[in-house]
Design a protein around this nucleic acid. Structure first.
Lengths: 249, 249
DNA sequence: CGGTGAGTTGAAAGCAATCAAATGGCGTGG
DNA sequence: CCACGCCATTTGATTGCTTTCAACTCACCG
């Protein structure tokens, strides 16, 4: 809770100029790492910061895409939902991940999925048109975007394997490993204890199971001594290798 | 690295000069549509054609990536497999689709999945290094590649919804609609009868079911008068709207 | 101290997987 | 031209994993 003080200040002063890209948490990660000091100034000029609380959405499925964004802190989910209550999370976004349907095309598009904050979320927004202009001006930026998109495609395909062929236990184990890795990338260091960013319902929607099955499998891993729990969210990874085994291929 | 002249590239017998890009089936589709006549000549210079028969593979999961390719005719599958026999098709590639793990990064990578011909397949191959050079020289090419990658990402996420949340009947109906659309894009026109490019086993691996379940659901659709069959592969779409209903959201 | 919502646990039902066998298409060889 | 064998597909019977329905626990908060 202590480390949230900086974010809290960012809320009250939402102008980019007062908190320029130079000192940004993700200045040297993700897209922005592709830009030089001079180039980053152009980005600063069009950037706007925004804060979302858990459950609040940045865009809704079907909306017209108006802006792109970079996540500077927190976790967001990409959700595709059906009228009948079924919904599937098609991606999780962490610190330094980029949000945007189709940059570079120069034409308006409708959002293919909702984007919802699952933790307190800090964003850096870019208006569509202006960002596209920069994209064309700086090839390294477009190249970096291509690489990130390819990474996401790879991840989506990994998830297709999970959803199409893995058992409930394998899915939960894979999910736990996935989150652990992402949390580490987000600067938390190699901790073996941290809070899951998602509740049971979101986990279920991410790995294609029901809440009850997720709960049962987590209990099973706990009873097997693979993980330890403190409350529902705080997880300690006790037997990392055992978890990998249970995650399957 | 010294870049050799285009003339020096005329090594292979089946090289591009004997069948230049200008008259290619996909000259004005996919990646190549982003290039002018002058620019396409550079592509012609590094291109090499190749033919694969059903079951033959272009790359194997884990191999080092050596080349990119364009599909000029036929259908290929992207497969991720496990030792225990389970496997999942993470993508189908049709005419004008691009094959390649991570262009533009300039470094070798291992292939994340095998690429296997499911029909007679005609390819246009590009050596990794040389293609990357062109990518940097022609921004429109890189931009087009970004767009296609974003499209594929969108498709992969659609499939995540299918694999995570749809019933067996919805999966089969969705698959049939998907294939129909792809076949039409491949220049077959708005036919309502054609051969499925995949056998039951591949369909099962694509939509996350077993062969038997796929067969049962197809039979059910036939008995319901939604589709008609002539043998196992030739399908006639009788009730398009009914198929859409059964495909779910 | 009760209310609420998230999570856990139990029992029963359902849907797809598995096991098993029959059918059909197709090329080969008699 | 037909018989045979092989392989893909279909169909049937049973099993079993996950879902569904339901009740209970727990933490948090007014």
């Amino acid at each position: 809770m202590v480390e949230r003080s900086r974010a809290a200040m960012g809320v009250t002063v939402t102008n980019a100029m007062t908190q320029a890209c130079a000192g940004c948490a993700v200045r040297h990660a993700g897209l922005c790492s592709a830009l030089s000091s001079d180039e980053i100034a152009d980005l600063t000029a069009i950037a706007r910061r925004k804060h979302l609380s858990p459950g609040q959405s940045l865009v809704l499925e079907g909306d017209t895409a108006r802006e792109f964004a970079n996540i500077t802190d927190g976790v967001a989910k990409l959700v595709r939902g059906a009228e009948d209550g079924r919904s599937q999370i098609v991606g999780l976004l962490f610190q330094s991940d980029f949000i945007g349907a189709a940059p570079g095309t120069g034409q308006a598009q409708t959002e293919p999925h909702s984007i919802v904050a699952v933790t307190e979320l800090e964003l850096c927004l870019f208006p569509r048109q202006r960002f596209d202009t920069l994209l064309h001006r700086y090839p390294t930026l477009e190249n970096k975007l291509l690489q990130q998109t390819l990474d996401e495609l790879q991840l989506a395909r990994d998830w297709m394997v999970l959803l199409g062929r893995k058992t409930a236990e394998e899915r939960v184990a894979t999910f736990l490993l996935h989150v652990a890795q992402k949390m580490r990338n987000s600067g938390c260091g190699p901790l073996d204890t941290f809070d899951l960013p998602l509740g049971r319902a979101d986990i279920a929607d991410y790995i294609g199971l029901t809440i009850e099955t997720v709960s049962r499998q987590i209990s099973k891993l706990r009873k097997a001594g693979i993980i330890a729990l403190d409350g529902a969210k705080s997880v300690t990874y006790v037997d990392y290798e055992g978890l990998k085994e249970r995650a399957g291929f």
